[in-house]
């Protein structure tokens, strides 16, 4: 398995923070895999996403290294990012078409007409109905799920080989969440894209990812194939995380009647 990137004893400390947000983290991101990074608030999972995407704030102290197997990724081109709130990616004062045309023309040598045609194709790829009409529409005219699809189209516009999704489905209702997960799966399969999927939901991670990494208190607890890690976790913290997660077979907390 070729690695796309390797974090080698990566430690990240935000300016003024007493403790590192990520401590001594070593892991490899395999080319073409879907790696889920799971953890609770403050575990460092979003910091790992930002470090790999080159989005750490100025003044952040970083030690250790991130090694890329090929040339270092070009910002805005080789790595796409999607966040929890599609509003973070979409300017309310720009049409959907303006976002995508800009997103395509900044990194790629495309004429306006060609960029517009590609923008429509991108919207079709993320299953936005009537792409031509959607190009002329404004972000607020779309539901949360549709807006997240548009944010994904924007993230993959330049054909990145890595897509970083930071809690990209957390604000969506479960039915829409399942649709977005299916879309991510489909895009990775069709484009051979690597996915770094950051989530607090270990069960969701298990349905999407090839491998799962568990973070706790800025450290890597365990990493392994998703099916193995969920069925037979090796670390007590992972077991606790799984025990706290409810599914439809979990013991109920109340009787059948009051």
């Amino acid at each position: 398995m070729t690695s796309l990137a390797t974090c080698d004893r990566l430690t990240v400390r935000y300016p003024g923070a007493a403790r590192p947000a990520l401590a001594d983290l070593t892991l490899a991101l395999h080319a073409g895999e879907k790696l889920a990074v799971v953890g609770e608030s403050g575990s460092g999972k979003s910091t790992l996403a930002r470090a790999l995407a080159g989005l750490l704030p100025v003044g952040t102290a970083l030690s250790g290294a991130i090694r890329w197997s090929g040339p270092p990724p070009r910002p805005g081109r080789d790595i796409g990012t999607v966040f929890q709130d599609p509003g973070a990616s979409l300017d309310p004062l720009l049409t959907v078409g303006a976002h995508l045309v800009e997103g395509l023309r900044a990194p790629l040598p495309l004429g306006r007409a060609e960029a517009r045609a590609r923008a429509a194709a991108l919207l079709a790829r993320v299953h936005i109905p009537d792409p031509e009409r959607a190009l002329a529409a404004w972000p607020h005219q779309f539901s949360g799920g549709q807006a997240q699809r548009i944010a994904i189209a924007l993230a993959i516009a330049a054909g990145p080989h890595l897509l970083v999704a930071d809690e990209a489905t957390s604000a969506l209702d479960v039915l829409v969440q399942a649709e977005i997960v299916a879309l991510l799966r489909e895009l990775c399969r069709d484009a051979g894209m690597t996915l770094l999927f950051i989530t607090h939901d270990i069960a969701l991670a298990g349905t999407l990812a090839d491998r799962v990494a568990v973070l706790h208190d800025a450290r890597l607890v365990e990493i392994g194939p998703a099916a193995r890690l969920l069925a037979a976790p090796r670390e007590p913290y992972t077991r606790a995380l799984l025990a706290a997660q409810l599914d439809l077979a979990s013991p109920r907390l109340v009787g059948t009647r009051p």
């Binding site: 479960v174 039915l175 399942a178 270990i202 349905t207 969920l230």
Partner: peptide, 13 residues
């Protein structure tokens, strides 16, 4: 659909 959307923990979909 709501039932199907709940990830099962010990069964890989």
């Amino acid at each position: 659909r709501l039932i199907a959307a709940v990830p099962a923990l010990h069964r890989k979909d």
